[in-house]
């Protein structure tokens, strides 16, 4: 049993990391009051930008190309997020419809370009992110072995982003304003906060992080861009709700989902898990999210103004 846990943890972590970054992306947007069901689309954009950059630069830059790919993906996501921000913030559009459009535009547009570039619509990256024993951290007993030995550098990156986000959202003026925009935008406006600028910033950060998450998924697990993120963006959305819109909650939720998905993938080869039907493990994240929604329905921590376009005239 213990052996198995040690064995599957690195896989679970590898799966958790992109999920965590994407759901952190969702956190910024939704904390500012803008629903972002376009996470899946932003991931696809990130995977496309990442795959393109890595496959172009790998011959010249080798390993550094991976990082260039992650950077380009982040930038691409930030730019693409302007579409969602423009619709939701400037034009007061229905945020769910805009998010749906984002998902569809992302898939169609990137596949269009991928077909023109490669002819097949897939972009396979020639190199992947290497696994290392992370310095010092890997030497920590038990945790080090599980989390940091033979780990991707992106694990560290994700943890840094998580920590920075937690501090930013709860301990800075920016974070206070962000939360105010999502809870009571009219009061925030009265206090002199520019709601539109805050929400634009939040949606752009959201797109950037979700695309970064997509690119990390690409360079660690997927290995190719093929026009879809396999529903991972929606899983991140589920994690955002299950984690009740809190950074530490997101860590817990994504770990939980990452573990469930990994167990679902390996259950056939593990004798004592073989009797659990796959369907139980695979639908597990969605079912527990529905259950969480039911349980927390009275005390949901969702931002109060989530999904409402800000109408200055109604103050």
């Amino acid at each position: 049993m213990w052996e198995t846990i040690i064995q599957i943890t690195p896989h679970a972590i590898a799966f958790t990391i992109p999920l965590l970054i994407v759901s952190l992306g969702g956190l910024y947007s939704e904390r500012s009051g803008v629903v972002n069901i376009g996470l899946e689309g932003f991931m696809v954009v990130g995977m496309f930008a990442g795959a393109l950059t890595v496959s172009l630069l790998a011959p010249a830059m080798q390993g550094t190309a991976i990082w260039a790919g992650l950077l380009m993906a982040t930038l691409a996501g930030a730019v693409f997020a302007l579409l969602h921000a423009f619709a939701c913030v400037t034009l007061n559009a229905n945020q769910v419809i805009s998010g749906t459009a984002i998902n569809m535009v992302a898939g169609a547009l990137t596949t269009y370009f991928a077909r023109l570039i490669t002819g097949s619509g897939n972009i396979v990256i020639p190199i992947a992110m290497p696994r290392h024993n992370l310095a010092y951290l890997a030497d920590i007993p038990i945790i080090g072995e599980m989390l940091f030995s033979r780990a991707y550098a992106s694990t560290l990156l994700a943890l840094v982003i998580l920590a920075v986000s937690a501090v930013l959202i709860y301990r800075t003026r920016f974070g206070l304003r962000l939360r105010a925009c999502g809870e009571n935008p009219h009061a925030a406006d009265a206090a002199g906060i520019n709601i539109y600028r805050m929400r634009y910033t939040a949606v752009i950060i959201s797109g950037a992080l979700a695309s970064l998450g997509g690119a990390i998924f690409l360079v660690t697990i997927a290995g190719e861009y093929n026009g879809t993120a396999g529903g991972l963006g929606f899983l991140a959305l589920a994690a955002l709700i299950f984690g009740q819109w809190k950074p530490i909650g997101l860590l817990g939720a994504t770990l939980f989902f990452g573990l469930a998905s990994t167990i679902a993938n390996v259950s056939r080869i593990l004798p004592y898990l073989a009797h659990i039907p796959d369907i139980v493990l695979q639908t597990f994240p969605y079912v527990v999210t529905l259950l969480a929604l039911v349980l927390f329905s009275r005390s949901s921590q969702a931002p109060k103004a989530l999904g409402e376009p800000y109408d200055k005239g109604r103050r």
Binding site: I97, S98, T100, A101, G107, A108
Partner: peptide
Amino acid sequence: IPPTIADAIIATIIYFAATGVL
């Protein structure tokens, strides 16, 4: 021209239908 152009057109239509205010 890649066939996904049709999907891109449909997706753009949704986007502009959502931003009907414009």
